[in-house]
Design a protein around this nucleic acid. Structure first.
Length: 434
DNA sequence: TCTGGGGTCCTAGGACCC
DNA sequence: TCTGGGGTCCTAGGACCC
């Protein structure tokens, strides 16, 4: 009987991912302070090292950064999620050439199970370096690698690799002498721990737990008493006891949300309805990709909370769908019915959205006593697959629904968006020979 | 003038049942 | 005048993540 393997995890994390993805296609962005902005050119959601050095915080509103544009040549790019999604897929593809045991944790990070790789490489740091080199060479994206006996420690190892250039972008906690580890973890604020957010950090601070090392030394029982089982698990993970497994097959989503802020205030039911229908279209597309049907849908609207002197209103409503569906037309109809119930005239709306809930697998769709319903479902499936294939072939929104409107004057601002270099023939980067 | 979007999990408390 | 106990299910809200 082979011994059950003691796990070793690697966390591969792209450096300043959105900025790095933009730099692959525009070398002029190299060495400049660059931020990538959220939807509507609202806040900075990714920052180059130079931008971080200027003191720009995650989530800083773009309009407040204008002085830095003049003083330091700060560049603000509108987000290009098509590009980032495609670049992300390429990075993950490279990781899979090292091991099939890959969990894509977010658009810019993956966990790898690597204990079996020990036999193939002189040591895991060498393997980590090989990953960095290969990803850089094949995609242009710089990454750092953290290695540890649990996911939580691999995350911290990655943090150490990022913050300490002497490690060359790879840090292996499994071979680090205890003394050195203690001094490294003592220098990291407890809030850097995966699972410790603002609230918990404040509570821990009151208990004199301020560094990762402090939390690692805490008693899991005491932590369970003051917090929940989640943080108890985190402490165990810090102590090297693996509680979180690699999830290499992504479970289907339990809810799908689509919402956006508008480029300008929207007053009328008609315009809100057009925006909402557009979001339902997106959500329904995602729903069909994972082959699910929705049993309910929530609609919500809100005014601009930052304009405190404006009259404020926000509301939401859940619309049950007695026959779970992934038919865009039915979902749009339900959403508009919900909107009618909560819309109040006289307010300046800033945002609305839709959430698809009670998702279940499409093939488990409940049968009906009446065969007619089955026929209708078949027709709906056929129509939706035509819709999806036309839009996949000719671009999103080639085929849409009338309720989504055609003027769309409410769409978000995106004043500095780069081309979809990798996903549209017409926007391929051009190379000029001299 | 301008402040993002999309997820998951856990817990407490109420409704309801026997 | 006396007024149980235990279980399940559901939901809202709070915490976290990127």
């Amino acid at each position: 009987m082979p011994e059950p393997a003691i796990p070793v995890y690697a966390l591969v994390d792209c450096n300043n991912f959105y900025v790095s993805a933009e730099r692959v296609f525009n070398p002029k962005l190299e060495d400049c302070p660059v931020v990538v902005l959220s939807n509507n050119d609202g806040c900075a959601v990714a920052r180059s090292a130079e931008a971080k050095a200027l003191g720009i915080q995650m989530g800083a509103p773009w309009f407040q950064l204008q002085p830095l544009v003049k003083q330091h040549g700060l560049i603000g790019l509108s987000s290009n999620y098509t590009l980032y999604g495609d670049m992300s897929a390429r990075v993950m593809q490279v990781l899979r050439t090292f091991t099939p045991d890959v969990e894509v944790y977010s658009i810019d990070e993956s966990f790898l199970r690597i204990e079996r790789m020990r036999q193939l490489w002189p040591c895991l740091v060498v393997m980590g370096q090989a990953i960095r080199t290969q990803v850089r060479q094949w995609t242009g994206i710089p990454v750092c690698v953290g290695i540890g006996p649990t996911k939580t420690l691999a995350k911290l190892a990655n943090h150490i690799a990022k913050k300490n250039p002497q490690f060359g972008g790879v840090f292996d906690m499994t071979t680090c002498p205890e003394g050195e580890l203690v001094s490294l973890l003592s220098a990291i604020d407890v809030s850097e721990t995966w699972g410790v957010g603002r609230r918990i950090a404040a509570k821990l601070d009151a208990m004199n737990i301020r560094t990762v090392e402090n939390l690692r030394r805490a008693s899991p029982k005491a932590i369970r008493l003051h917090f929940s089982v989640v943080l108890e698990r985190t402490v165990a993970e810090l102590q090297g006891i693996s509680c979180l497994a690699l999830e290499d097959v992504a479970p289907p989503k339990k809810q799908i949300v689509s919402s956006r802020s508008f480029g300008r205030m929207v007053m009328t039911y008609e315009e809100l309805g057009e925006a909402l229908s557009t979001y339902v279209l997106r959500a329904a597309e995602k729903l069909r990709v994972q082959k699910s049907v929705a049993g309910a849908l929530q609609v919500f609207v809100m005014t601009n909370v930052f304009r405190e002197t404006d009259p404020q209103y926000s509301n939401g409503i859940v619309i049950p769908l007695p026959n779970p569906t992934n038919d865009t037309l039915k979902l749009v109809a339900a959403a508009l019915y919900g909107l009618k119930r909560i819309y109040k005239p006289g307010y300046a709306y800033k945002k609305c959205g839709v959430m698809l809930m009670d998702l279940s697998p499409q093939h488990q769709r409940q049968g009906s006593l009446f065969s007619q319903v089955e026929d209708v479902a078949r027709h709906s499936d056929a129509l939706m697959s035509v819709l999806d294939s036309i839009n996949a072939r000719y671009g999103r929104d080639t085929l849409t629904v009338a309720a989504a409107g055609t003027r769309n004057t409410w769409v978000a601002r995106a004043e500095n968006k780069t081309p979809c270099y990798t996903t549209r023939w017409s926007e391929l980067p051009k190379a000029w020979a001299h």
